[in-house]
Design a protein around this nucleic acid. Structure first.
Length: 258
DNA sequence: ATGACTTGCGCGGCAAGA
């Protein structure tokens, strides 16, 4: 089965791109981030018309995550650990197919800039909550996929110029350590299980010709529990989508599970 | 080069993104 994560940077601005992607690639599961709209504004009819079920967790103007699936979804919205957190950044679903169940989360981890701010403290606290959830999920011994925009550059080889990112919330040692702590629980970074290459990017800024100069970063990740990692066949980054008309600044990251 | 681009909100310029 094919599972994809894609930050679309406004699903209303990107609905044609989304529908084209579903028609072209026909994934089994597509995790979306940065919907930037309420549930009622999601292009549900169009997506259902292509044979998908949709679980949407939206918010006015900002954030927003969703999971599209050809198979039925059993959905949980929100991340435990802070009842006062109103950001729509996490949705999780149990998906059943002929071979059994797989649990998939679509997450939009906070950006956290500037580093000396409540925004960065919120990012780190959110990562602690994600680690707690990830630890709990491991105990279920299910195939689990934590897919999304992590806003974390894991290593120097994951950005064009590490010096540029040295003081950024996406690349600070504390950020990378927490991402590593998540992996160390027993999750596999799907892309890194299949390639050691540098320069495999998933985001290129709209500004300053970043795409044309290939000044990208790798921040969209698929983390797999052991039972999911055992089924990993391959990972591909749908880079050409960044060259389309009016693209998202992120591209889809897609993997095949046996 | 105090830059550069895109989106939402809502109708005037900010806030947010990464």
């Amino acid at each position: 089965m094919q599972i994809v994560t894609w930050n679309v940077n406004s699903v209303r601005q990107r609905s044609e791109h989304l529908l084209r992607y579903l028609r072209d690639v026909n994934p089994d599961v597509l995790c979306l981030q940065e919907l930037k709209c309420v549930d009622a504004a999601f292009p549900l009819i169009e997506v259902e018309g292509l044979g998908y079920n949709a679980a949407v967790h939206g918010q006015k103007g900002l954030n927003g995550v969703a999971i599209l699936s050809k198979m039925p979804l059993e959905v949980t919205r929100g991340l435990d650990g802070d009842a006062s957190d109103a950001h729509a950044r996490y949705i999780e679903a149990v998906i059943s197919d002929a071979t059994g169940i797989i649990r998939v989360a679509s997450l939009y981890l906070p950006n956290g800039n500037p580093p000396d701010s409540d925004k960065y403290r919120y990012k780190l606290a959110w990562m602690d909550r994600l680690i707690a959830r990830a630890r709990y999920l491991l105990g279920l011994e299910e195939p689990v996929v934590l897919a999304g925009d992590y806003n974390v550059i894991p290593e120097p080889r994951d950005c064009f110029d590490p010096k540029v990112w040295a003081g950024d919330a996406l690349f600070l040692p504390q950020t990378r350590q927490k991402f590593q702590a998540l992996v160390n629980l027993g999750y596999t970074d799907a892309l890194r299980a299949t390639s050691d290459a540098a320069g495999l990017y998933t985001f290129w800024d709209y500004q300053a010709g970043a795409w044309q100069k290939n000044k990208g970063i790798r921040i969209d990740h698929l983390l797999l529990s052991p039972r999911a990692a055992d089924r990993l066949v391959g990972v591909s980054i749908d880079k050409q989508r960044r060259g389309e008309d009016k693209p998202s600044d992120h591209v889809p990251v897609r993997m095949e599970l046996a």
